[in-house]
Amino acid sequence: MMEKMIFGRYVPIPSVIHKMDPRSKLIIIFLFVAIIFLANNWITYALIALYTFFMLGLSKVPFRFLYGGLKPVIWLVLFTFLLQLFFTKGGNLVFDWGPIEIYEEGIRMGLFISLRFFFLILITSLLTLTTTPIEITDGLETLLTPLKKLRFPVHEMALMMSISLRFIPTLMQETDKIMKAQIARGVEFASGPIKERIKAVIPLLIPLFVSSFKRAEELAIAMEARGYRGGEGRTKYRQLSWRMIDTLQVGLLVILTILLIIFRS
């Protein structure tokens, strides 16, 4: 039952986007989040849409996986749309029914803001769909390296992230096992009033905590025994390689930025 939760993330297929350096992907995402606010008319939104769908196409990620990422936020998008629709005034009155008044500007703003949301979600989920969590960690670590000068613990953060990623499946298996053991002892996780259900979680959580602490302790010992003494003087096995495609992709985004600046009103 636990296995279902993890997939829907990384989709291992060969595509240009998958092969890109996580650093370029992260740079593109950050830039994209910024420049999407430049769009303010139909032509600029059309450019953004064109770019987004072009990237989706390159990634070859099947639509249902994208939909999986959209599903949880679709209500939020709808809500923002309605909010803008009813409360933005300006332009011609299009619809008038008692207290409800809808203006031209309301429709425009509603559409624009929900589209902005929509594209943001698509592009960011494209990152997680085409990049393994460990690649993202590596990318972040390298990009954040300058922060080391400010005594920000970049290496430690990255190590923590990669160890957490490593142990997620292990903890999932463990949760499943303890859950079954407690069900066999008469605990009902899935039914009963909410108070009972919260109580039922305790026999699951405590053993999980206890075993996680034990794991953490043993892991620390094992790491020490293998000569780990902090980030200093360490070399790195995992390597990132910036290729032509990465430069091209960043270039493409720069062109998009320029176009947006030219065509925005």
Partner: peptide, 12 residues
């Protein structure tokens, strides 16, 4: 009654 592998992990 089931005694799972490493049943001590279920104590809480």
């Amino acid at each position: 009654g089931i005694v799972f592998q490493f049943p001590e992990h279920q104590l809480f």
